[in-house]
Amino acid sequence: MTAALTFDGLDSVVLDIEGTTSATGFVVDVLYPYSRERFGALLAERGAEPAVRRAADQVREAAGEPAADAARIERILGGWLDEDRKATPLKTLQGIIWSEGFARGDLVSHFYPDTIPALRRWHAAGLRLHVYSSGSVAAQRAWFGHTPEGDLLPLVEGFYDTENAGPKQSPESYAAITAAIGAEPARTLFLSDRPGELDAARAAGWRTVGVRRPGEPYFEQGVGDHPEAACLDELTLTRRTP
């Protein structure tokens, strides 16, 4: 078991989702198949909607196939899912599908048992909570809005993805979030299971914790030289005093 960690003088906590607050297996085993089954209908029936059309054009550009029709785009998306590629248009279309699935009650998000109590505890202590995930903002909002314990959106101040912030292993993305949330980098703590993301956040001046949960894809890789926690219960976070 890792030792307890204390971080004083914080303003903001930014959380990854998969592998940090929630099980990657749930996303892969439940959400990915749900979206795979619905890409075709979304592209064929709602291709004229601005968000769908824009994402489809981004798929064509990324694949180098400007004439790709809806059926071909569906196959490309399926291939990206098989590769677990963090492509923005894939995440956009998944976000549309998942948001509607959560709203219908088809889906309920997953959180590790220690996560929701920790989020409530930190929020009550005056810390500003944000989310930065490769999943689209729409998917993130649906995830936090439809949990086993109800709507957690009031706990979270802001949501960031690869479109409104940038790639998760780029320090510039974390600098962009710093500018958006208006918190000093040294008073911002980032929680993630991926060492490349932690390195990028630290390069932008953030404080970091690697969350290393057994069974997650990055568990064996470790978190490099970042402070390590096995669960959020091991973190004691306090807000800066005026």
Rank of each mutant, 00 (worst) to 15 (best):
M1W: 13
A3Y: 03
A4N: 13
F7W: 15
D11R: 14
S12Q: 10
V13K: 01
V13A: 00
L15A: 03
I17T: 03
G19P: 12
T20D: 00
T20N: 00
T21L: 15
A23G: 09
G25C: 02
F26Q: 07
F26E: 02
D29W: 10
Y32D: 11
P33A: 04
Y34F: 15
R36T: 04
R36V: 03
R36E: 09
E37P: 00
A41R: 15
L43G: 09
R46N: 08
E49C: 12
P50A: 06
V52D: 10
V52N: 09
R53M: 04
R53G: 03
A55I: 11
A56R: 02
Q58R: 15
Q58W: 14
A62Y: 13
A62R: 13
G64C: 08
A67M: 10
A68Y: 13
A71W: 10
A71Q: 13
A71C: 06
I73L: 10
I73V: 14
R75F: 12
R75C: 11
I76G: 04
K86G: 05
A87V: 00
A87D: 08
T88Q: 13
L90G: 09
Q94Y: 11
Q94W: 09
G95L: 01
W98A: 02
E100S: 08
L107K: 06
S109E: 00
S109F: 05
T115I: 08
I116G: 01
R121V: 00
H123S: 12
H123I: 00
A125V: 00
A125L: 01
L127T: 02
S133R: 09
A139Q: 02
Q140W: 15
A142C: 04
A142L: 01
W143Q: 03
F144W: 13
H146Q: 02
P148D: 08
E149A: 08
E149Y: 10
E149W: 07
D151V: 07
D151L: 11
L153R: 15
P154C: 09
P154A: 03
P154W: 14
G158L: 05
G158R: 05
E163N: 09
G166P: 11
K168Y: 14
Q169L: 10
S170N: 09
S170C: 06
P171E: 07
Y174C: 09
A176W: 07
A176P: 12
T178I: 03
I181M: 12
A183N: 03
E184N: 06
A186R: 14
R187M: 02
R187Y: 11
L191Q: 11
D193P: 10
R194V: 13
G196V: 04
G196L: 05
A200V: 03
A201H: 07
R202I: 00
R207N: 04
G210P: 14
V211E: 00
R212A: 08
R213T: 04
P214G: 04
P214F: 07
P217T: 03
Y218G: 00
F219A: 09
E220T: 12
E220Y: 06
Q221Y: 04
V223D: 03
G224K: 06
D225M: 04
E228P: 04
A230K: 06
D233A: 06
D233S: 11
T241M: 00
P242V: 05
P242W: 06
P242F: 08
